[in-house]
Design a protein around this nucleic acid. Structure first.
Ligand SMILES: O=c1ccn([C@H]2C[C@H](O)[C@@H](COP(=O)(O)OP(=O)(O)OP(=O)(O)O)O2)c(=O)[nH]1
Ligand SMILES: [Mg+2]
Length: 712
DNA sequence: TGACAGTGGGT
DNA sequence: ACCCAC
DNA sequence: GTCA
């Protein structure tokens, strides 16, 4: 909301400026060469270009008008990078500064100054002229026109009804129909901010085949409950919504940015979790992880049964999704291939440039997308386990991942290997692979098996027999002192891990497959000091340190994606600071991946201001305890008689004190009881506070010595 | 406006 | 440094 | 994309 307000305000207040700063680049289709420019900068330029109507393409083709490169780059290198023999004359090879200048000047600047094409005798002149005239055309074209719509129009499409009339009524004239359908860019209405998102990831094309749309919700509801079976809590009442959103989620994951995709995923999980069919706008808008924009999309689906947005996905998207399915290929590789005109796996096999891993991924494309039965995973586990025991009967080997979580199907088999003696795990990997390979069980390596001190293996295996398929196999060999953290890590789920690690982070700790560290110091977001590993023997220890109730592997399945966040039972977000103290029992609970946890205490560290509070109270307690025991001894050793003597016959000061103390001492056991109680209370509560700023053992030791020194 | 997990292998 | 994966 |  605030964004929209901002931009329209800006428009009203200073229309000239708004227009001036927005050159129309719609005639420009440019290849931006990242080499020398840097990926981030290239992307900023690309975003700006797209935002002003221009188009960036990855591969030089007939639609290209410009090639933007860093000025230090030789044209020869550019050719090599683009995999072309020659760059057509009509295409201007220009310094990327040209675009920057255009943007800052707010208009198209003559390109001449920026041309970087190699000077090759005669034809340069004509080429230059060609380009010049072309640019002039563009410039004149833009001179008469207004700007802005494509963007405000976009906003309206994205926001549904949200766009206020002020913008649309004043600005229209040219039909904006070509709202840049570039991929999935559904950009926010704010100006200025070039989002340099640069990160791509988040879920490879979600492999479950997208369920065909438009199944009657009623049907789904009934069928779902019985088909979904045991594992899920109660089934998805809104599949017709989540399916649609899922399309966008994977599209974003496979192309643009992981974070938008993450947003979608959380929202989808949230919807799946909802106990009933979504009916009112209120319901939509109150879902956790569903904000204004998604609420509108959801609401549109609820009302119309359709999401217009889905009609505008980039046609290339299908091919991209297809290619991201090959193991070892991500959004970048996929886009490269697509932009080279590749469309099918056949194309890829024949003409694509693949890494070694991707070749294997392609070879087993179908098999890798399949999930195996739990039973088969168990067999694979046995094979590996046997091989391990052959090496050393003391070795332990267990299948983790989805198998350990009890899932009915497994996408791969993840096996952890270690030895309780803490040493014998060394060198096991190589020997293990040797055995498994010689038996023909392992068919391909995705990681090179060359390195001697290897801890992680990714490969392909196949059970002996006729109708068996190639399966992905992951093996890790870990030192036994890391067993718990490694087991926790390898069991997942991935989102469970991420949640837990985030929780650790928010408490000044850091959780990895190696260890749980405390006392981590971060400056901003980067780690300054790694912290020190906490002693962790079992998975449960990690839960304990984090103040979580233990969850068995079967309960770590977060079909629900979610951030660990703290909420009150009554639903109010009490905000942050996991170190909040429970005053009333059970009042504080933890919401993780859609399920709640009650928390006990959490270790603190000096990063927290609370740490000092605890330290302070601790010291206070020590002194207090000392005072108490001192008083106990002192006061009780005085007898009433001598005090009375003092009261009468002592110096004036002594008299005064004596009469003050006397009434206290006279209530003899009352005094004793209070003192003892106070002392006991102080002493007892010391370790409680100490506990939270240190490990228990240390806490006890320190407490005891402190009491000895100051108290007794 | 910045964070959304933390790590390791491959190129 | 980037991409991709667990 | 959402949240704080
Ligand atoms: O991004 C990730 C991916 C995986 N893991 C951990 C948790 C996961 O359980 C384990 C094994 O990874 P895998 O990809 O095999 O996931 P899975 O849980 O076993 O599911 P699948 O059935 O697809 O194999 O590695 C992470 O911590 N982060
Ligand atoms: Mg797995």
């Amino acid at each position: 909301m605030s964004r929209k307000r901002k931009s329209s305000e800006g428009l009203n207040e200073n229309p000239k400026k708004a227009i001036k700063l927005r050159p129309d680049l719609s005639e420009i289709t440019a290849v931006i060469v990242e080499v020398g420019l840097g990926k981030t900068r290239a992307e900023i330029l690309a975003n700006q270009l797209a935002r002003r109507g221009g188009k960036r393409i990855k591969q030089l083709d007939s639609s290209a008008t410009h090639v933007l490169i860093d000025k230090k780059l030789s044209v020869e290198r550019v050719k090599k990078y683009l995999c072309v023999k020659d760059i057509p004359k009509e295409v201007a090879v220009v310094d990327s500064d040209w675009l920057s200048t255009c943007l800052s000047e707010g208009k198209l600047v003559a390109v001449d100054e920026y041309i970087l094409r190699e000077v090759k005798s005669s034809d340069t002149a004509s080429a230059c002229e060609l380009r010049k005239s072309r640019v002039e055309e563009i410039v004149s074209d833009v001179g008469g026109e207004e700007v802005e719509h494509s963007e405000s129009f976009n906003v309206d499409v994205g926001m549904g009804t949200g766009g206020e009339t002020t913008g649309t009524s004043t600005v229209f004239s040219r039909s904006p129909v070509k709202y840049s359908v570039v991929g999935l860019q559904d950009r926010s209405g704010d100006d200025g901010s070039d989002y340099t998102d640069s990160g791509d990831e988040e879920s490879k094309s979600d492999r479950s085949p997208v369920v065909s749309p438009n199944v009657s919700p009623e049907k789904l509801q009934t069928t779902l409950v019985c088909t979904q079976a045991s594992t899920s809590n109660q089934g998805n009442h809104n599949q017709f919504i989540t399916d649609k959103l899922q399309v966008l989620a994977t599209a974003y994951a496979n192309t643009k940015d992981q974070w938008r995709a993450l947003g979608y995923k959380k929202a989808i999980a949230s919807i799946k979790n909802y106990h009933k069919k979504l009916e009112t706008w209120e319901e939509c808008n109150n879902l956790p992880f569903v904000g204004e924009r998604l609420a509108k999309k959801i609401w549109e689906i609820v009302q119309t049964g359709h999401l217009r947005r889905l009609d505008h996905v980039d046609p290339k998207q299908d091919a991209i999704n297809l290619f991201v399915g090959v193991w070892g290929a991500g959004p970048t590789a996929a886009e490269t291939w697509v932009s080279q005109g590749l469309k099918t796996l056949q194309d890829l096999k024949n003409h694509g440039k693949l890494t070694r891993q991707q070749q294997i991924g392609l070879k087993y494309y179908d098999e890798f997308l399949e999930r195996m039965s739990r039973e088969e995973a168990g067999k694979i586990e046995e094979v590996v386990k046997k091989a391990a025991l052959d090496i050393n009967p003391g070795l332990e080997a267990f299948a983790c991942g989805s198998f350990r979580r009890g899932k009915p199907t497994c996408g791969d088999v993840d096996i952890i290997v270690s030895h309780p003696d803490g040493k014998s795990h060394e060198g096991v990997m190589a020997r293990l692979l040797e055995i498994l390979k010689s038996s023909g069980f392992l068919t391909d390596d995705l990681t090179l098996a060359e390195n001697g001190m290897q801890r992680k293996y990714l490969g392909v295996c196949k059970l002996p027999g006729e109708n068996t398929k190639h399966r992905r196999l992951d093996i890790i060999v870990v030192p036994y002192n890391e067993w718990a953290c490694a087991l926790l890590y390898f069991t997942g789920s991935d989102y469970f891990n991420r949640s837990m690690r985030l929780l650790a982070k928010n408490n000044g700790m850091s959780l990895s497959e190696h260890s749980l560290n405390t006392g981590v110091i971060r400056k901003g977001n980067e780690k300054i000091f790694e912290g020190t590993p906490l002693p962790v023997c079992t998975e449960k220890d990690v839960f304990d340190y984090l103040g979580l109730e233990y969850r068995g592997p079967h309960e770590r399945d977060c079909g629900k994606v979610g951030v660990i966040s703290c909420r009150r039972r009554d639903g109010l977000v009490f905000l942050e600071e996991m170190s909040y103290i429970c005053v009333k029992e059970d009042e504080i609970s933890l919401m993780c991946n859609g399920t709640r946890y009650d928390r006990h205490e959490v270790p603190l560290n000096y990063k927290d201001s609370k740490f000092w509070i605890y330290l302070g109270t601790y010291l206070g307690l020590v002194l207090f305890a000392g005072l108490m025991s001192g008083l106990t001894m002192g006061l009780l050793s005085l007898d009433v008689l001598s005090l009375k003597v003092l009261q009468r016959g002592g110096k004036p000061i002594e008299k005064k004190y004596a009469s003050k103390i006397l009434p206290i001492v006279e209530k003899h056991h009352l005094l004793l009881v209070t003192l003892l109680l106070a002392n006991a209370a102080a002493v007892e509560s010391m370790p409680i506070f100490m506990d939270r700023i240190s490990t228990p053992v240390i806490a006890i030791v320190v407490s005891v010595t402190a009491v000895l020194l100051f108290g007794e």
